[in-house]
Amino acid sequence: MPESKIHFDRVCLEYPKNGNKSGLRFARTPRPNGQSTLVLENIDLEIETGEFVSIIGHSGCGKSSLLKIVAGFVRPTGGSIWIDGRPVEGPRADHMFVFQEGALFPWLTILKNVSLALNSARDQADRIKMARQYLELVSLEAYEDYYPHMLSGGMRQRAELARALAARPDVLLVDEPFSGLDYLTRLQMREEILYLHMMLEKTTILFVTHDIDEALQLSDRVVIMSGPPGRLQSCRPICVAHPRQLSSSVLDEMRSDIYHQLGVHAAL
């Protein structure tokens, strides 16, 4: 029986070649046949409770697909994922996915968006009160009656985080959440997520990104993927205390190493 928080056991994913990706919506298992594309190949990984792990790789290497398998949106065609010793069989509120694009419901105010995650609360008044607390956590309490489109990209992303956290997940799956934001907002969001991770120390975070600095600043461990087909290339623990100085020699060396592994030389 696996003892780690998240245990990846030879996870494979294949898509039929002429299959459409929209089938993902129903989490159908693509039928493996001769005409298929291998997306992920034998991913083995252990993640400990409370760990902040970043997954880095070129676009198309399958890192988002891997995250969707952990979330239970997509069923692997081979292998399995275990969380707390239980196999992942579908989406659950304690493994929250934070989406890349705006996934807030545009027809609900952000307060109502957040309160939707609190469907276990007893009565409406309780829900609203708790939803406000989560909005305070991301400093959006003044905007509770705003609809998502009235907020800036950074605020939307924070509201999305608040909604995910309101479900009280013990695993947070974050898929390039800041890629649509401007540079300054991204820096702010890094602080935000670091602060949240320290507040909720038992929460395990799996963070997909292609921003190496983001990974270096935030994570306890960086997982580098190659592909397609997606394979684990290497893991690099980062044993530097927060707040981290990105220009420090340790991180600098690590950065060059990651660039090298990814086969990017221009940046050096």
Partner: peptide, 26 residues
């Protein structure tokens, strides 16, 4: 948008709640 259904599934909304909060307003 299928993302809304994924969010609904992730939040484990009941069938009724998914209808009232996602399908109908959409």
């Amino acid at each position: 948008n299928p993302i809304y259904f994924q969010v609904g599934a992730n939040l484990q909304l009941s069938r009724w709640s998914a209808f009232a909060n996602i399908i109908l307003p959409a």
